[in-house]
Design a protein around this nucleic acid. Structure first.
Lengths: 133, 133
DNA sequence: GCCAGATGCGGGCATATACACGCATACATG
DNA sequence: CATGTATGCGTGTATATGCCCGCATCTGGC
C-alpha cells in the first residue's frame, strides 16, 4: 500500500480544481464557493443561515460570514424573519440573480472541461466515491 | 448531465475527510495539513520554503505561514541558509520527529478506514482521477 | 566589476473554514 | 404562567489558502 495520504491528495486536487473554477468565474467577481452558495440560495430562497448550513454541510458560522461577503458584494440581502425573531433569512438581490445567470456559462464550461478531461465514466465514479466519504 | 457542481462535491468531500483525519490527529495537537507538511519536511530536510511550496503545490506565502505555526508549536526550526542569504531553510526539531512518529498510527488508521470503506480498487481509481486533475 | 533581471521572503489583504462562547428568542413541561 | 432547555446568530480565535507588493540577494551578460 502506498504511503501517500489519501486526504492530502484529495486536498491538493480540490485546491487545483477550485483554482480552475475561480479563474473562470473571476470576470464575474465571484469564486466557486460563492457561486455554489448563490445557487443554493437561488433554489431555496428565502432561507435561514442554519438551513443554508445544513444544505451545504458547512458550519453555520462559516455560512454567516460567507453570506456577509455576498451581501457586501450586493448579491444577497438578509433580513430578520418575521415568524422567528432569531432567524436571519437570506435572499438574492436582482444583481445576485443576474450574476448567477451571467456566470452560468463560465461555470458550465468548467463542468464540460473536467468532464471531457476525465470522461463521463470517471466523473460518475468520482461522484460515487466522494458521496460515500 | 447533472447540474451538480463537480468542484463543490470535491470541496465538500475534502472538508469531510479532512475533519476525519483532523479528529484522529487531535490528540497530537496537529491537523492533517500540518502532519502532511511535517512529513514532507521530514523526507527532504533541510529544505527552503520555496522548495517546500513546490513539493506540496502550495503557494510559497501559504507555506511560510504554515511553517510559522509549526515553529510556534516547536515542531520545526527555520534558519537562514548559509549558501543563499535569501533562503530560509526548514528542519524538524526532535519534538517534530517525535510527533510524526507518535501520530503515525492514528494517520495510518485513517488510511485503513478509508481504504476499507471504499475498497482498494476505488482508492486506486480515486488517486488516478485526482492526479489527473 | 556593474547593472538588470531573476529569485526568495515577509507582510498586507482577502476569503474559506471550524469550534467555543455568549446572547436572544422560542418552546415545552410542570 | 414560569422556568429550563433547545435553537439561531454573531463574535472571538485560529488555521489554511492565494495574490500582490516591496525588499534583499543572487546571477548572468556586458
Amino acid at each position: 500500500m502506498s504511503t501517500l495520504c489519501h486526504c492530502t491528495i484529495l486536498r491538493r486536487a480540490t485546491r487545483k480544481l477550485s483554482a480552475v473554477y475561480d479563474l473562470a468565474l473571476a470576470p464575474f467577481a465571484i469564486n466557486i464557493a460563492q457561486y455554489s452558495l448563490l445557487r443554493v440560495i437561488a433554489r431555496e430562497q428565502p432561507l435561514s443561515l442554519t438551513t443554508l448550513g445544513r444544505r451545504t454541510e458547512l458550519d453555520r458560522s462559516t455560512v454567516g460570514r460567507n453570506v456577509r461577503v455576498l451581501e457586501k458584494l450586493g448579491l444577497v440581502v438578509t433580513r430578520k424573519s418575521e415568524d422567528d425573531q432569531r432567524e436571519a433569512v437570506v435572499a438574492l438581490t436582482a444583481q445576485g440573480t443576474d450574476t448567477i445567470q451571467r456566470a452560468f456559462p463560465a461555470w458550465e464550461n468548467c463542468q464540460r472541461d473536467i468532464e471531457a478531461k476525465l470522461g463521463a465514466g470517471k466523473i460518475d465514479t468520482l461522484r460515487t466515491i466522494l458521496d460515500s466519504i
